[in-house]
């Protein structure tokens, strides 16, 4: 990695966290790749806040996991045929979202089995393609676990375009998405094309997965998709509020993860996930205690 030649490892290990972060900030001013990485994290946070909220309240994390993992098939095929892997990932994610959506709508009884199978089949296809592509074996790790430091600047535009698409779609059809997430049967009675919007929501999940793969890789995507929204759900009780707070939290986790991992030369993706996971656990304990305390107060108030 580029920064190894700039920054000797043994010095940073002995410094405290504050020094590591300040070192990150001074490096941020000097190195364009760090600025790009920071921006990539912030752009991914928008998707993770807006769509992650739907994933959490509609409880489709397992389906989102299926979509994320089967994306490897598309990335592998794109590498093999010499196409941009991100484009391959986008196509594969949308195809897999539609397949998984169709499974959920048509074979409800074996939903989990079939989604689990699609999950693994997609990965198997990807690994076969990558194995047959000369010279690309090292990229497998960055697909699986992400490498935010290697995001090329031009891809920021691609990510921004995906974000814009996500926000516009959700804003235009907010009431329909709310209705199908809250109560499918009632939405159907009110003439909302439930199947269409359900599949569209899964496609938006697919787009978000592609955004997040840049940052944390396809194995870790699911955590960044669900944890910020789940933490927001501990404190706010509106969908819009959850989206806003989850976006801010996503930005915080990716930036903090990048900053903390920079000094000790840790991989950024797993660092972000551990921070998000740690905050989630603390928040769950805290909000649980808060609820109990409120109930206790109410019970003893009279």
């Amino acid at each position: 990695m580029l920064k190894k030649s700039i920054q000797p490892k043994n010095i940073t290990y002995r410094t405290g966290r504050g020094l590591i972060m300040s070192e990150f900030f001074s490096a941020l001013g000097q190195h364009a790749f760090l600025q790009t990485a920071l921006l990539a994290g912030l752009l991914a946070s928008i998707g993770c806040g807006v769509i992650g909220t739907f994933v959490v309240v509609k409880r489709i994390a397992f389906m989102a996991g299926g979509i994320a993992h089967s994306v490897l098939g598309g990335m592998g095929a794109a590498l093999y045929y010499g196409v941009d892997p991100l484009l391959g990932a986008l196509l594969a994610a949308i195809l897999s979202a539609l397949l998984i959506g169709a499974v959920r709508l048509l074979w409800k009884t074996q939903e989990d089995t079939l989604i689990g199978a699609l999950w693994a089949i997609g990965m198997a296809i990807g690994i076969l393609f990558i194995a047959k592509t000369p010279g690309y074996a090292t990229d497998l790790m960055s697909f699986l676990f992400g490498n935010i430091l290697l995001v090329p600047t031009r891809e920021l535009w691609f990510m921004a375009a995906l974000d814009l698409g996500l926000i516009l779609t959700v804003a235009l059809f907010y009431r329909q998405f709310l209705a199908i997430t809250f109560d499918e049967e009632f939405a159907r009675l009110r003439g909302v094309p439930v199947t269409f919007f359900y599949l569209l929501l899964l496609c938006l999940v697919a787009v978000t997965v592609v955004l997040l793969i840049q940052v944390v890789g396809l194995i870790l995507v699911i955590a960044l998709l669900t944890l910020p929204a789940a933490i927001a759900g501990h404190y706010v009780h509106s969908l819009g509020g959850m989206m806003l707070i989850a976006t801010l939290l996503g930005g915080l986790f990716t930036s903090l993860g990048l900053g903390v991992s920079y000094g000790p030369d840790l991989p950024a993706g797993p660092t972000m996930i551990l921070i998000a996971g740690g905050v989630y656990v603390l928040s769950a304990l805290f909000s649980h205690a808060l609820t109990r305390r409120r109930a206790w107060r109410r019970a003893t108030a009279v």
Partner: peptide
């Protein structure tokens, strides 16, 4: 036919009848 813990207010639920 909805989860009781859904983050939504009564007013928003009733407004869904206007879809």
């Amino acid at each position: 036919s909805f989860p009781r813990d859904f983050p939504i207010s009564v007013e928003q639920v009733v407004a869904m009848g206007r879809l």
